[in-house]
Simulated scan of single mutants.
Amino acid sequence: MPTIRTASPEDAPLLASLNGIVHQLHVGHRPDLFVDSPDQDVLEAFFRARLTDPAVTAFVAEHPDGRTLGYAQARLVSWDSGALVRSDLVVCLDQIAVVPDATGTGVGSALLEAVREAGRRAGCRRLVTEVRDFNEGARAFYDAAGFRRMNVRLDQLL
């Protein structure tokens, strides 16, 4: 079983590297949306900024031998009420990635549980995430974890 720890700003290079696992899948399916080779310095600065945001928490999964197995990044979001919807405090899972040789070993589930627990501690009533339609592995993971579809986003080139 992996050890899950909270990431710090010093982990920005690690998260930038792990992000490539999912990013390359995104580039392969939607090169019209995703940058082929993000600048490493820019990516690290992005993660460093996120990790200093009090609404953001990231977790790193590590093997007992010290190898990094994956990460998850989540943020707290307050949904405002309106004429048709209720207000809510939610935890949004923005990113999750598991190294390929650890897929299917419970690492993703352990990271997901860390995000759930962070949300519960913050008083959130729900966990939300987005998944790209082409990412069948992620869709299957979320289905198995008990998520249900909430929205479907469509796009069309003009």
Rank of each mutant, 00 (worst) to 15 (best):
T129S: 08
Y142Q: 06
L127I: 15
A122T: 03
D53Q: 05
V115T: 07
A61F: 04
A12T: 01
V131H: 06
V128G: 08
L15F: 00
D155K: 11
R67L: 13
L69F: 12
D94G: 05
T68H: 14
E136S: 11
I21F: 02
Y142E: 04
C92K: 14
R30A: 09
A138S: 11
D155M: 15
M150A: 15
A138V: 07
V77I: 08
N135S: 08
V99G: 04
D32K: 03
G119F: 05
P38R: 12
E117F: 07
A49C: 12
G20T: 09
D88I: 07
P38Q: 11
T52P: 00
A138T: 06
L15T: 01
G82Y: 03
C92H: 15
L43V: 11
A97R: 00
E113I: 09
R132C: 04
F34N: 03
Y142L: 09
D11M: 03
P54K: 10
W79S: 12
A145P: 03
T103G: 09
Q40V: 15
G119Q: 04
E10A: 08
V35H: 07
G28I: 00
A144Y: 05
Q73I: 15
R121F: 05
V22W: 04
Q73R: 13
H26D: 02
P9I: 00
L89K: 12
E117D: 12
G123R: 06
P38V: 00
S87C: 11
F34A: 04
T129I: 11
Q24C: 06
Y71H: 12
A45I: 02
Q24I: 04
R67V: 14
A61K: 00
F147W: 02
R126I: 03
A74V: 02
R50K: 15
H29P: 01
V85E: 10
R120C: 07
R50W: 06
D65W: 14
E117V: 13
R75N: 12
R148Q: 09
V85C: 10
G28L: 00
H23W: 07
T105V: 09
T105P: 05
V90M: 10
L93T: 02
A145S: 08
F34S: 02
D11W: 01
Y142T: 01
D80V: 13
L14M: 07
L18V: 13
S8C: 09
L69T: 11
G70W: 09
L15M: 03
N151I: 14
L93H: 03
Q95R: 07
L18D: 04
G28R: 05
S17K: 05
D88S: 13
S17M: 05
D41R: 03
P64G: 12
R48G: 01
A122I: 04
F46H: 08
R125L: 13
D11N: 04
S37D: 11
G108S: 06
V152T: 15
P13Q: 01
R75D: 10
G28K: 02
L15K: 01
A83F: 10
E136L: 14
A138K: 07
T52R: 08
R149V: 15
T129Y: 07
A58M: 01
E136I: 14
T57A: 03
T68Y: 04
S78P: 00
N151V: 13
V98A: 07
F147S: 04
P54D: 11
